[in-house]
Amino acid sequence: MANRKKKKMTKKQKEQRTKWIFTGIVLLIVFFMGLFLGENKQTGLTLNERIESFKEELVAIFNPEKEEVDQTKNQETTIRFLDAGQGSATLIQAEDGTTILIDSGRYEDKDKKIIQQLDQYVGTGGTIDLLIFTHNDSDHIGYGDLIINYYDVKEVWMNGNDATSKIYERVLDAVDESNAIYSEPKAGENKQVGPFQIEVISPNEQSDDDQNDDSIITKITVNQVIGLFSGDASQSIEKAIVEARMDVTADFILMGHHGSDTSTSQEWIQASQPEFAIFSAGKNNSYGHPGEEAINRLREQSIPVYGTIENGTITVTIHEDGTYSIQTEKGENLDEDDA
């Protein structure tokens, strides 16, 4: 994998820097005018104290990113499992605007529905703080190149397992030409993105060049609610993770491999103990997703299942107090009669 470019200062950031410098100069002039005209006498501060106070104000102006932010503060969060046909795309947005996108749908969608959805929920040209491509199959990196080109993507995660497809090459080119930070996270790494705590469960360093099994598996926590996202990882990977005694307990799971029977094993369900599960798949797809066996494994544990085939886009709203609500674009949750 070629080295990625380090993040550059964007045009917008340069404009903001110029504005901060101009504001600082104005404040500096006002400060010294007040200092020498005696307008600050009523404060009771000495000359050195006033200078130190002003220095702190300048630091806040020129380095706003240095301001301490309570990233653990609870805030309402919306998770949308987008109706991406026979693909996968999950949009996670906090009340403060922090946005994470996991996968970008299937490239065969001529209507580019994923772009329409992001325009609606993120805003044309809006910011995506973290874009995670769980692996490099075309139904997960879809229009990833357009997303990187059309939106202000701050950081991109990929699994580091090269592919030969044209869409993969287009995504790499888009990353190289962007200002986004590029990373290949491994198991055990943790990252805070706004209010989201992200724990990387897989892959580890031992790649077997299998895109599905090298999927980036993450646990994402907000307001003490945990989601488990496993890409297309198979039961063998699930088993290895469980046997390694990694904590995969979660309030909900995105079923592996679009609900395929080859994922979401009994061991995975017992280890994660989800309150509900979701799969993303296209109607009348040729793969037979979701698999009846996988759905039944969840039903046997009385775990509700929602799917984009029956429900369209599925929206999970996580409230500040740690409770959540589920809203579907159409239909109800998959029950015994929907098999």
Results as ranks from 00 to 15, higher is better:
S236R: 10
Y107K: 01
K12T: 13
T10R: 08
E300C: 14
T264E: 04
N311Q: 14
K186W: 12
Q93S: 06
N161K: 09
Y150K: 12
R245Q: 08
I226T: 15
T78N: 05
G231P: 02
V225G: 07
A250W: 05
K191W: 03
S53Q: 14
Q235A: 02
N63I: 11
Q120E: 15
Q235D: 03
F133K: 03
K186D: 10
I102S: 02
Y143K: 04
V200N: 08
G322R: 06
A187F: 03
S230L: 07
Q211P: 02
G256H: 09
R106T: 14
Q235K: 03
F276N: 03
S165W: 00
D210F: 02
G126T: 14
D176W: 01
V122K: 00
E320T: 12
A163T: 06
R106C: 10
S263I: 02
T98Y: 02
S230F: 02
R299Q: 10
F252V: 11
I79K: 07
T221R: 11
S280R: 06
N204W: 11
G38S: 05
I61K: 00
A94R: 00
K110E: 09
V153K: 01
D83P: 00
Q16M: 08
L28V: 10
P304I: 14
M255K: 06
K219A: 13
L118D: 09
T134Q: 11
Y150Q: 10
S53N: 15
V122N: 01
Q327H: 10
K7I: 07
E177N: 13
V305F: 07
I269V: 15
Y121Q: 09
E95Y: 01
T134C: 05
S202F: 13
G288K: 00
R106D: 15
I100Y: 02
A233P: 05
D173W: 04
T308L: 02
T127N: 09
Y143V: 12
I51P: 01
E336R: 11
I100M: 06
D247E: 13
Y182M: 10
T78S: 06
D137S: 09
K14W: 11
Q197D: 13
L131G: 08
L35R: 05
Y306E: 13
E293M: 13
S183H: 10
S236H: 13
L27K: 01
S104D: 09
T43E: 11
N74V: 14
G231M: 04
T46Y: 07
A250Y: 05
T10C: 02
Q301A: 15
I241S: 09
P185F: 09
D209S: 09
K11H: 15
T98H: 04
S138P: 01
R297G: 00
R50T: 00
T328Q: 01
V222P: 05
Q71C: 13
D152A: 13
T164C: 00
I309P: 00
M246D: 07
Q235P: 00
Q266R: 11
L146V: 07
E199K: 14
H319P: 01
V305N: 06
E68Q: 11
L130P: 02
S325Q: 15
Y182P: 03
S265M: 07
V69D: 08
K12P: 06
Q192A: 09
I237E: 08
V222I: 13
I217M: 15
G87A: 02
P185Q: 12
Y151D: 06
